[in-house]
Design a protein around this nucleic acid. Structure first.
Lengths: 150, 150
DNA sequence: ATATTTGAAGAATATTATTCTGATTTAAAA
DNA sequence: TTTTAAATCAGAATAATATTCTTCAAATAT
């Protein structure tokens, strides 16, 4: 098991916010030359500290700016129903995140839609055809205050 | 206002999942040569469809694998209290997302901690010193089912 | 039908990533 | 403390990629 030091952490924090810096720029930021920085990043990638690199898109421009947190209660709590739910949810593009949670509900989903009409259509037509769902409860996002990924 | 076509959408979807492809690789995927692909990506960046590029890190390896959704009710609903809350929350590193929501609570926060002990410490010491908070309710994530960003 | 615009391909160039070598430091062992 | 070995670094050399530029073809408008 590899150990990481303070410079590795600096690099991770920088890349988490912006992965387009050149190694030369990163080197200047952490007071090293390019080659050790390059090697450190490769090591962090190979050891799994960095999982992947992605582009963040503008949800509003892509007609996905209407965010809803949707709580789900299953009909029954056996493994088959649970697996069926997970399998169904995976195929629905509006569901961008889904968690198995504690509390009154079984799952919490983050849903990304164009607008209320689109969300209504999603609930009726998409969720409506997922047999394993017992009940749902929608919490609408009025504004995004903080997002360390966005 | 720029219009985007099907090839642009393909590029956006690819880059949203993996931004490390070379333009040559992307060109092959969308059946174009490198230069038009390069120009399309620059256009998508300049027009704001692509907001930024980031590295996704392994939360578990960085001692942040314990996820909790924390609902917040404010003491009062005036602008000062709200602004104070937002300002305070911005400084707390465990809060990775925060939304102003409809329903019984005012805000929904996604909190990222090392473990239950760390979360308890977060609630008592960090949230405990945010004066604007009236009450909280914690929903624990038992497992992550789907994450289009992770 | 002709001019104009748009978008693409391919070559040329610039920049950056990646590798390699030698030097320096650090840590451990004698 | 001295010696040895293992890491880590800097800087040069090379390879790969991004970026620019020119030309050409297709679509659209005149």
């Amino acid at each position: 098991m590899e150990q990481i030091d303070d410079i590795d952490l600096q690099l991770l924090n920088i890349l988490h916010d912006n992965s387009k810096y050149t190694v030369k720029e990163l080197a200047k930021m952490v007071n090293l030359s390019a080659s050790p920085v390059f090697e450190r990043i490769k090591r962090l990638e190979n050891n799994g500290y960095i999982k992947k690199y992605i582009a963040l898109l503008d949800a509003e421009k892509l007609n996905r700016g209407f965010i809803v947190f949707c709580n789900i209660k299953l009909k029954q709590h056996d493994r088959n129903i649970g697996n069926q739910f997970v399998s169904d949810i995976m195929k629905i593009e509006e569901v961008v995140e889904c968690y198995n949670i504690s509390g009154d509900y079984d799952f919490l989903m983050k849903v990304s839609a164009k607008d209320m009409k689109h969300y209504q259509d999603f609930v009726f037509n998409k969720l409506g055809s997922v047999e394993s769902i017992g009940s749902t409860q929608s919490t609408f996002v009025m504004s995004e205050i903080k997002n360390m990924y966005g």
